[in-house]
Design a protein around this nucleic acid. Structure first.
Lengths: 196, 196
DNA sequence: GTCTATAGACGGATAGAC
DNA sequence: GTCTATCCGTCTATAGAC
């Protein structure tokens, strides 16, 4: 919201830097990333980067926002919820198609536990919001119990956990390709029998 | 299997070092951990540690094995599978009770994606094995379809993904305490209606 | 077996020229 | 706005004394 657009040229540079940083963070993690590496990929020097983002930490939070912007809420969006399973399965496919997005998420989230409070807080809020939205959508659609008997809150928690877990495992084992399909099947069971 | 017991005294030192390293890795991640920090916690100097584990990488793989040993297969073990949901829920509770185990797992796994091949391979095999065992147990119990209609393989994948995801989210949001319960409920749905 | 001392490398951040 | 040069800190790993 804040970092994207300002002065015409300056904004473009910022985007270049963020894009470079996103890739490098995904490949090497936060601690493993040197500003030099980001700078090189963006086509300038360390000081060039530090001009726009005066510290590595600032750069990190900017990248997290940038990632979220790119990955624009495939979930909990305003679609008709008839085929919610398919939508969620598509999220998985989409993130796997551009692994940087999934990887930077996994890596930064895990690293946030061992590091700065800034990133930690970002993820904390991120999940609270996402979970709240998802549960609300389910409640709106089904009331306080899904056909399967689960509460919307429990189902939302479970689905989001499964999403994260699958993405992580998929990153580890690129050979398997059946994750979206599994996700679809499991979701169908989790929601419960749909009356025709 | 290999690293635990050797000479009486030396083995004890090794365990002390591994125990210290487990905690420090959990708190700071691999890259964030200095051998000095491990040494201090174990009550000797950097060179003392390097005497037993001649490099940081060697120490890492030893710690991963140690962790696995501690967390001894709560899952896919040889219990009666009647109350499998409860068992899995208990895994979550157990790991949350000693957060180092869960945290070192999450953190090292994510970091393995950005770093060394050694850790990456460890996790790759770890999950293949775990998933195989779990699917085999389900197949043995239910045949090629669970009562819910899912295949054992799909169910195993989903459950393990959910386990990881929940542990990670729980680490992020220590306030919530309903994860084991959710896990139990969701598993009941995933397995399917149990005939009385 | 554990220590001190040191080599050798790298990363973050600042100052100041252009 | 982007560069060069530099300071200071930290890290892994080795060599050698006790």
């Amino acid at each position: 919201m804040t970092t994207a657009r300002r002065e015409g040229a300056s904004g473009a540079r910022r985007s270049e830097i963020l894009d470079a940083a996103l890739h490098v963070f995904a490949e090497r993690g936060y601690r493993g990333t040197s500003i030099d590496a980001v700078a090189e990929r963006a086509g300038l020097t360390r000081q060039g980067v530090l001009h726009y983002y005066p510290s590595k930490k600032r750069l990190l939070v900017a990248v997290l926002g940038y990632r979220e912007e790119l990955s624009r809420e495939h979930l909990a969006a305003d679609h008709p919820d008839e085929d919610w399973p398919n939508q969620v399965a598509e999220v998985i496919s989409h993130e796997h198609a551009s692994p940087w997005l999934a990887q930077v998420q996994s890596v930064m989230m895990a690293e946030s536990m061992t590091g700065d409070v800034a990133a930690q807080q970002y993820f904390h809020e991120h999940y609270r919001t996402l979970q709240g939205k998802t549960a609300a959508r389910l409640a709106e659609r089904y009331g306080e119990r899904l056909p399967s008997g689960l509460t919307p809150r429990a189902a939302a928690t479970a689905v989001l956990a499964m999403l994260d877990g699958m993405q992580q495992q998929w990153l580890l084992d690129g050979e398997r390709s059946d994750y979206p399909e599994i996700m679809r099947d499991v979701l169908a069971v989790l929601l419960g029998p749909t009356p025709v």
